[in-house]
C-alpha cells in the first residue's frame, strides 16, 4: 500500500510536470510557430498607442525575448525557489511555490488562486452534496419502481437536466427566484463561510441547485442503471432470504454495491469541478477559480492561464488518487 502510494504520488508529479510543459508550449510556443515575435506577444499587454520601443521594453520585462527553455526554467525556478518582481519603486518577493505573476494585473498568481479557491470549493462541495442526495435517491426510487410514473417523470427531468446548459437554467433561475420572486439573492452574492455560515448557504442555494440539476440528472441515471443491475444479483436474494426488511435490502445491500462505480465518477467530477466550474461561476458572477480562468483566457494573461491550469490538473490528479485509494476501502476485493 505504502509503495503503491509513493508510486502514485511520483506519477502525479510527473503528470503535473507534463501538463505544465504542454500548457506552456500551447501558450508560448504556438504563437511563435504562427509567426509572432516576442514584441508581437508583448503588444497585447501595452496600451493601444504604445510605440515599438515601449513594446520592446515590455517584451523584455515579461521575458519574451529569452529562449523558451529559459522562460520555462524561470517558471520552474519560481515554483521551487520563489521569484522577485518589480512594482516600480520596490521589489516584491513571491515565495515558493511561485506560479508566476500576472502580465495584466501584475500580481502574483498563487495568492489570487488561493483567494478564490474557497468560492469554488463552496460551490463544488455544496453542489455535490445536493446533486448526490437528489440524484442517488431519484435513481434508487426509479430503479425500484421501474416503468412507474415516478420513474418516467424523474428520467424525463434527468434528460432535461443533462441537456440544458447551466447558463440557461442559471439565468432562468435567477430571473424567477431572485428578481421576480425575491426569494434568493442576486447573482454575485457570496458570503464567506467563516463570516456567516447561514448566509453563505443562502447565497449559494441557487448556484448549488443549478449545478446539481445538471449533475443530479447524470447521477440519477447512473444510480438507476446500477441499482437495476445490483438488485438482480444473487446476494440480494440471499439478503431477502435472511428475512431482512426490504429497506435494508435496498440500502445496505443494493445501494452499497451500486454506489461503488458512482463513487469513482463522483470523485473525478469533484476534481474537475474544483478546477473549472467556469459556466456556473460565470452565470452567477461568482469570483471563483472558474471565473478567474475565464478572465485569464479572455485577457490572454498567460501566467494566470498556466497557474489555473496547473491547479485544475492538480485537483483532477489528486481526485484520481483519492478515488483509487477510496476504492480499496469501499471494495474489499481490491487489494494492492
Amino acid at each position: 500500500m505504502f509503495a503503491y502510494l509513493i508510486r502514485r504520488l511520483l506519477g502525479a508529479i510527473v503528470m503535473l510536470f507534463i501538463v505544465s510543459i504542454a500548457v506552456f508550449l500551447i501558450f508560448f510556443l504556438l504563437p511563435r510557430i504562427g509567426g509572432a515575435t516576442a514584441d508581437d506577444l508583448a503588444s497585447r499587454y501595452v496600451g493601444k498607442t504604445a510605440d515599438a520601443a515601449q513594446i520592446h521594453l515590455m517584451a523584455q520585462k515579461l521575458g519574451f525575448t529569452d529562449p523558451l527553455y529559459v522562460q520555462y526554467g524561470r517558471f520552474l525556478a519560481g515554483i521551487f525557489a520563489g521569484a522577485d518582481y518589480s512594482t516600480g519603486p520596490t521589489t516584491v518577493h513571491c515565495p515558493a511555490p511561485c506560479l508566476g505573476y500576472s502580465f495584466i494585473t501584475q500580481n502574483p498568481v498563487l495568492p489570487d488562486l488561493l483567494d478564490r479557491f474557497p468560492v469554488t470549493l463552496s460551490l463544488a462541495v455544496g453542489g455535490a452534496i445536493v446533486w448526490l442526495s437528489f440524484g442517488v435517491s431519484a435513481g434508487v426510487v426509479s430503479a425500484l419502481r421501474k416503468g412507474s410514473l415516478f420513474d418516467r417523470t424523474a428520467m424525463g427531468i434527468a434528460l432535461a437536466g443533462v441537456s440544458l446548459p447551466i447558463f440557461f437554467t442559471g439565468l432562468l433561475a435567477l430571473n424567477i427566484f431572485s428578481y421576480n420572486l425575491g426569494w434568493f439573492p442576486a447573482g454575485g452574492s457570496y458570503t464567506n463561510f467563516t463570516d456567516n455560515p447561514a448566509l453563505w448557504a443562502y447565497d449559494l442555494i441557487l448556484p448549488w441547485v443549478t449545478l446539481a440539476f445538471l449533475n443530479a440528472a447524470a447521477y440519477a441515471r447512473l444510480t438507476r442503471a446500477g441499482m437495476l443491475e445490483t438488485m438482480g444479483e444473487d446476494f440480494i436474494r440471499t439478503a431477502r432470504a435472511k428475512g431482512l426488511p426490504e429497506r435494508t435490502v435496498v440500502v445496505r445491500h443494493g445501494l452499497r454495491a451500486a454506489l461503488t462505480p458512482i463513487t469513482t465518477i463522483f470523485g473525478l467530477d469533484i476534481g474537475i469541478l474544483l478546477g473549472s466550474s467556469i459556466l456556473t461561476e460565470h452565470t452567477y458572477s461568482l469570483n471563483g477559480l472558474g471565473a478567474y480562468a475565464l478572465q485569464a483566457i479572455t485577457s490572454n494573461d498567460l501566467p494566470k492561464v498556466l497557474g489555473v491550469t496547473i491547479l485544475a490538473a492538480t485537483f483532477v490528479i489528486v481526485a484520481n488518487l483519492v478515488v483509487d485509494i477510496l476504492y480499496v476501502v469501499i471494495d474489499p476485493r481490491v487489494r494492492i
Partner: peptide
C-alpha cells in the same frame, strides 16, 4: 512622470511619452 513608465503602467495612453 510615473505614468511614462510603460513597463510598470502598460495600460494607459502614451500621449505624454509621445
Amino acid at each position: 512622470e510615473r505614468s511614462l513608465d510603460k513597463t510598470v503602467f502598460p495600460n494607459g495612453p502614451t500621449y505624454f511619452n509621445d
